[in-house]
Design a protein around this nucleic acid. Structure first.
Lengths: 113, 113
DNA sequence: CGTCGATTTCGATGGCTGTCTATACGGAGA
DNA sequence: TCTCCGTATAGACAGCCATCGAAATCGACG
């Protein structure tokens, strides 16, 4: 599943109606963010100083099974919000700030009028 | 359903891990945004000059039944992304820029480092 | 007061999603 | 090579969601 190139060249924000294709792409990312567990996972990754988080650090923060965490990480990865890298036995996840930045710009409302 | 007061006082952004309660509240809004039709509806409302859109204007832009559009509008309204006002026979929807602004701030990543 | 048009609500249905258990994979070390 | 540990995948199940048609509601207007 391609990591959502649809976001690549985002028109400033909600100044003009999204066409169906772009909307579908953006919706994929928002859908990924629409789960409390994934939001918390993302915030853990984003707030980590070094920028990297080991999976084992994430599973420890939840009372969910390890496969469930792995599933959520895959969802976040599929939409381009995080990347992963294996080193030794551990897999480290890292934020993709560009994707978040695109979303933030898309939602940014300049002024009430 | 309360229009998500959880967002009211948003800590800057993803600087510290979201607690479960806040994550649940924010996830509700993102889940609402995680549908292509709702995204397009929202962009139609947001991009409209006067700031107001009649339901009839929205239904015309989709090949969906009118009740379906109404359902999506209710979802957007329940999470505080839009408000509605009835005038005469028509109901007009209007953007709530504060909610979008909160989300935008939440996702905003200051700098890669 | 009755009708009409616009919108919402209701009930049902098919598909998607979050979660689990069990299993497989991949690297490290003995 | 064998085993252990960390992680990913597969399959299954329950609950939620998008959608629809039908019916109810709500204003306006005779």
């Amino acid at each position: 599943m391609e990591p959502l190139d649809l976001l690549e060249c985002s028109p400033p924000l909600m100044r003009e109606p999204l066409d169906a294709e772009r909307a579908a792409g953006v919706a994929r990312v928002f859908k990924a963010l629409g789960d409390p567990v994934r939001l918390r996972i993302l915030s853990i990754v984003a707030s980590r100083a070094g920028g990297e988080v080991c999976v084992c650090d994430i599973t420890g923060a939840f009372e969910l099974s390890q496969p469930t965490i792995s599933h959520h990480l895959k969802v976040l990865k599929d939409v381009g919000l995080v990347t992963s890298e294996r080193r030794a036995s551990w897999v480290y996840y890292r934020l993709v700030p560009e994707t978040l930045g695109e979303l933030s710009a898309l939602l940014d409302v300049p002024a009430p009028v």
